[in-house]
Design a protein around this nucleic acid. Structure first.
Lengths: 201, 201
DNA sequence: GGGGTTGTCTACCGGTTGGTAGACAAGCAT
DNA sequence: ATGCTTGTCTACCAACCGGTAGACAACCCC
């Protein structure tokens, strides 16, 4: 009944599942809960995604595509080394502002083990390669401090995602402030931190 | 029987619970599993910790005390700004080497919400205060780049803990390498990264 | 308008979960 | 010796979990 058209349902379910997996964790989130949140029964969810694992895979795929799209758009027209680095950070922060559960889901996906995470990683792998090449050429050009470019990329990832996901730590360290202004201030801090960390000696 | 003396059991259970919570997540870890791993039945575990939540609280307490002790020892005798910062990083990495599940547990504790995490945070709060004062005085002395000291501390936390917990990302970005040498290289990278990030402009 | 497809449902299942009730044995104190 | 405390156990329990079976209604195509 009501014939909503399967693709919309599918998208709603993935969105809610990302929220639930990010917030409660994979094993903490239940199919009942996810299904009810979009107004259907669990068995209907299982019609779209035959197992919980299949649902997770669809979430990883969707999340990978979304972040790849956002970063790709953000990079358009940015040429200098620092402009490009800052554009990526800004894109991720804007995505986190619009979709707060996204970074939490990403972190949970990483926790579930490398096998699953690679489903996400493989989608953004072209960007990873580009980023490593970018960092290496920046080092060759003397614009970025000499170091292992892959490890630098890893450090940048942890700094950005960490500053978006460690809300409890943030509360404990700098006090409770969930406002948008707080997020902006954090972004400025990350940008300054990363800029300084990448600067040549 | 066998009269092991309750305190040893208690400590074993907490250690195993930290491992399980860190590895499987709070809701993914079961009391059965934790109890069996230390050679007793679940009901005996529940004799020591009446609920799963009580077990978690004991873990947070123990983890807080342990990290406070390690950092405190590491700081002894270190005087210069950078020596102190590096000593803390080194202490955390050494703890992670000896007890790999510890950083994962810490991250999981943060995920469970600010209420629970504060049980941990309150124990290391004196160190937090000292660290903020230390960073501020370093800025006043011109040894550290001017910025919000609390936010800088938060950034340092995310960089260190992130580099210890995002194993899946590390796999995807720099390849699979779980060796001790890999951990050491990562520590050097973190040290170089934050040293550069903290350097005055 | 009949047949297949798509979507949603009720009913159910076996296994697992956190937690309770209570028996019981070993050691300690008197 | 006896009674109390401490520790461990077996036996349950209700709730929830992911997943299956199958009825059934709405829509589309012909």
């Amino acid at each position: 009944m009501t014939r909503t058209g399967g693709e919309i349902r599918r998208r709603d379910l993935i969105e809610e599942a990302i929220r639930a997996f990010g917030h409660e964790g994979y094993s903490g989130a239940s199919l009942d809960q996810i299904a009810n949140a979009v107004g259907i029964r669990k068995q209907t969810l299982l019609y779209y995604f035959p197992t919980k694992d299949a649902l997770l895979e669809a979430c990883l795929q969707a999340a990978g595509e979304r972040v790849a799209l956002d970063i790709s758009n953000a990079l358009a027209g940015k040429e200098t080394y620092w402009d490009r680095a800052e554009a990526v950070i800004h894109a991720v922060f804007r995505l986190a502002e619009e979709w707060p559960e996204f970074p939490m889901f990403l972190r949970e996906a990483g926790r579930l083990g490398a096998e699953g995470f690679e489903r996400f990683a493989s989608i953004i792998d072209p960007m990873r390669k580009r980023a490593v090449d970018f960092l290496r050429s920046g080092m060759d050009a003397g614009q970025i401090r000499e170091q292992d470019p892959a490890l630098l990329l890893f450090m940048l990832y942890t700094a950005v995602v960490g500053s978006l996901t460690e809300a409890s730590v943030l509360n404990a360290v700098v006090g409770k402030d969930r406002s948008r202004a707080s997020l902006r201030r954090r972004e400025r801090e990350v940008v300054g931190f990363v800029r300084s960390a990448m600067a040549p000696a």
